[in-house]
C-alpha cells in the first residue's frame, strides 16, 4: 500500500490547502485599497529592486552541503550492513571518515566555514 499511500498523502495535502484557499477566496469580504497591494517595508515605498544578485555567503554553504551530503548518502547503506560486515566495514568507514574529516579541516582552514 506504500505507493498508493504516497499518492494519498500527496492528495491530502493538496486538498487541505486547496480547500482552504478556495474557501477564503470566496467567503471573506473584500475591500479595495491602493496601498494594500504594496510591498510591506515598514510603511515606506520600496527603494530599488529586491530580486538582485545576492551575497555569495549563502551559496557557499549550499555547495558545502552538497559535498558533504552526497558523501553522507554513501553512509546509509554502510550503516545498514555494519552489523553483518563488522570489522571490514568499520575499517573502510574509518578511512572514509578520515577523508571526510580532512575535507572538513581543509574547508575550516581555508576559512570557508567563516560567514562573510
Amino acid at each position: 500500500m506504500n505507493s498508493e499511500g504516497l499518492i494519498l498523502f500527496f492528495l491530502l495535502g493538496l486538498t487541505l490547502v486547496g480547500f482552504a484557499i478556495v474557501f477564503s477566496y470566496f467567503i471573506p469580504r473584500k475591500s479595495e485599497n491602493l496601498q494594500k497591494y504594496e510591498t510591506y517595508e515598514c510603511g515606506i515605498p520600496t527603494y530599488g529592486l529586491s530580486w538582485i544578485q545576492f551575497n555569495v555567503g549563502y551559496y557557499l554553504f549550499a555547495i558545502m552541503f552538497l559535498i558533504f551530503d552526497v558523501e553522507a548518502v554513501f553512509l546509509f547503506p554502510w550503516a545498514v550492513v555494519m552489523k553483518e560486515l563488522k570489522m571490514v566495514a568499520f575499517i573502510e568507514i574509518l578511512i572514509f571518515f578520515v577523508i571526510l574529516g580532512l575535507g572538513l579541516m581543509y574547508a575550516w582552514k581555508k576559512q570557508a566555514l567563516k560567514w562573510e
Partner: peptide, 10 residues
C-alpha cells in the same frame, strides 16, 4: 542597481 536598501522603521 545592485545596492540593496532596506527600510527599518517607522
Amino acid at each position: 542597481e545592485q545596492e540593496y536598501f532596506i527600510n527599518m522603521g517607522p
